[in-house]
Design a binder for these strands. Structure first.
Lengths: 410, 410
DNA sequence: GATTTTTTTCTCGACAGTCGAGAAATTTAG
DNA sequence: CTAAATTTCTCGACTGTCGAGAAAAAAATC
């Protein structure tokens, strides 16, 4: 449904635009903002003085002028305008990071997490404690924390911060909104981890000059299998989604998956599945909870030495991934695929299967193989994705509420 | 990438909004437009007088006043403001419809089409002739045709009116843009047929009061298998896509499909596939080009009498569809599924397989069966989809170019 | 038939926002 | 010390929306 526009909306939009340009390029002068946004100098003046009054941006100290003419006055976000807490939940630990409004990391620590699958309630309690701890360590007042951005593997509700299904807790839903609301007035958002990787890669692509980025899929290989898709929207920045790829049906009545269903992609391509297949354990065996990477490294070594059974295990994993990716491509459009996660160390063994699996579908035969690239540093990408996403959410919120509120009271 | 806003943009948006409300609800009075759009009466005055000057809308003759007070002046689109030609390409015919700007059908005829697969060039020539014929019959000047909206089964380029793959011509691409540009200055758009069905169903859902429509998938069953997905966007109306569903991989190294690949969904659920399976012909047999529906009716009758082999054929088809739908749901979100097309007459035979196929995936086991409804009148929905889509494109174009142009010259 | 009531449309001034041009500020070059 | 260069700031013009109230026009009432 279309909705009406107004002149106030124009100002809001352009304010967000100014903030996003500032975020992307760091401290900028009046003129540069004008160049990047396409807005006139007069408009930039109006918007920046408003944002400055609202204590959202500040003039930086005029550094030694380079070149003649009136020296530039750089504008930047006020670091202390607000803070962000990033919570990255991985299979064996939870990492807490405190970040200021300019995107600078202030404090960080990790906490081990137990592998107790019944401990959803206890886990939530641990997260609450962790959040309070990082706040306490920093001596920042709680109201200054504007956003808590959480990521996890698994399936996430698209509108609310509810973890619908996760590798550890299964279908024991975790509602972070209601869990944190008592203690925090900060907004809470939750995203799938691989979605953030995709978002970060997409943002990097858009930075490249000249390249007209359209879409991209990130595939994360590890104990579980995740996929994130990012598409350039027609007007509203990027559009991202995190499908339930690891548990998409690979083969009806196939191997038993951790989730209890048979035939999921993960039941062929997850670390435990490769292990199971390499040891020729029946496919309906209940999968191992956790597989040390060293164990898998041994199998990979054997496969590289030419042993058939472990090589076949990796090949089967690749096939499942390739078939799944081909199905994804049938439903979307041709797009490059970036593979990340600890599983990339076995890419040499997986590759043939992936390509064969992709090649079995009409779309790939017709349009050709999608570009596949291997991207290391998944952890960095996850954090980068958090920052991109969370800080732009904060910008939006600040403009929507903050400016008017402060303007009205000031 | 975000882009700057301006006050002119506000007027454009609101003009389009007024036109779309007028389109949705028919002729409306000043006050009603104000109610529907949320814009103030003064703004409505400004916009409507502008549109009236530009000869896009007109005041209708003041009909007998109903109730006291100053009688209402109804506003409506000027029928002769511009025209639309709808071209519906189906497997055995091409239907041409001439529609005025108010959405009223003026003329329509169908032309048989040959099944010559090598005749891509000849087919294009036939379409060009058909377009000239409907124009000639109507005595409307060619410049008044603002848009040619074409639909076909098969795979369509997402940005340009290029038919990338079709059941009849295979990978012989047809570029309607370059084919029609010499003779027509009208804009040309091309959409997948099932996408239009989904769009029409989505629009109907949005009309329903109170129901908060989120998303919907339309599955068209016939000689080929099509899927359209419509999702309510966050701001910009609806977002629709037409995946290459019929040729998504169902089973690696499975039955031979018309497209030459093995294991496509269509190779199990298309009419020819059901026939092949019912006659126990080997699955790698080259499929029949065209199957008379009467033939399939016979098989269905036998299946309903309890014969095992034909019943199994339908069940296999259902399984392929169910598995495919479950994969689609894994990649999107839970959404209702509307089944249309000639294949709906066999829904009683397909149903069990579809449900079983759906139930084999994690997502369905976790979130439950999606709602499935059978919708007849596919033809009507296709045309309705054309109208919805094409007329709103025209509205957009007119506001973008027309108003200013005419204003400037007037 | 004149007046009042009711309803709709039109108009006017206030307010918000953007833009272009030019003034003001401030540093370097000569 | 003056001129040139460059950036920032300010002002008036223009576009757009809104609320209030005037104007229009028909039905109801006296």
């Amino acid at each position: 449904m279309l909705t009406k526009s107004s002149t106030e909306l124009v100002r809001q939009r352009n304010s967000v635009l100014v903030l996003s340009v500032l975020r992307r390029h760091g401290a900028l002068a009046h003129t540069e903002i004008s160049d990047f946004t396409g807005l006139s100098s007069a408009t930039i003046s109006a918007i920046t003085t408003e944002l400055e009054k609202a204590q959202i941006i500040e003039k930086s100290e005029h550094q030694p002028a380079s070149g003649r003419g009136r020296p530039r006055v750089l504008l930047r976000q006020r670091r202390d305008c607000g803070y962000l807490i990033v919570v990255i939940i991985s299979s064996d630990a939870v990492q807490y990071s405190l970040v200021d409004y300019a995107g600078k990391l202030i404090d960080r620590f990790s906490e081990e997490r137990s592998h107790d699958p019944t401990g959803a309630a206890r886990f939530v309690a641990a997260v609450r404690a962790g959040l309070l701890r990082i706040l306490d360590r920093s001596k920042i007042s709680q109201e200054k924390v504007l956003l808590i951005s959480i990521s996890s593997k698994g399936l996430v509700n698209s509108t609310e911060p509810v973890l619908v299904w996760s590798p550890i807790f299964g279908s024991d839903q975790i509602d972070f909104e209601s869990a944190l609301r008592p203690e925090w007035q900060a907004k809470v958002i939750l995203d799938n981890e691989t979605l953030l990787v995709a978002a970060a890669l997409g943002a990097r692509e858009e930075m490249v000059e000249g390249a007209d980025f359209r879409s991209l899929a990130a595939l994360s290989l590890g104990h579980s299998v995740g996929l994130g898709i990012v598409r350039r929207g027609n007007q509203t920045g990027q559009e991202i989604s995190a499908p339930n790829f690891g548990h998409m049906l690979h083969m009806a009545n196939g191997g038993l998956c951790r989730c209890g269903t048979r035939g999921c992609i993960e039941a062929y391509a997850g670390f435990y599945a490769i292990l199971r297949s390499a040891f020729e354990v029946p496919l309906d065996t209940i999968p191992a909870k956790f597989v040390p990477v060293a164990e898998l490294d041994k199998i990979a070594a054997k496969a590289r030495q030419g042993h058939r059974v472990p090589a076949f295990a990796f090949r089967q994993a690749g096939l499942a991934l390739g078939n799944g990716l081909s199905r994804m491509l049938s439903l979307t459009e041709r797009m490059p695929i970036a593979i990340t996660g600890p599983g990339t160390r076995y890419y040499d063994l997986l590759r043939q299967g992936i390509e064969e699996g992709l090649g079995q579908s009409h779309i790939v035969r017709m349009e050709g193989m999608p570009e596949i690239r291997v991207v290391a540093d998944e952890q960095i990408l996850v954090f980068e994705g958090h920052l991109n996403r969370a800080l732009s959410v904060i910008d939006q919120d600040i403009v929507l509420s903050g400016v008017q509120g402060i303007q009205a009271s000031g």
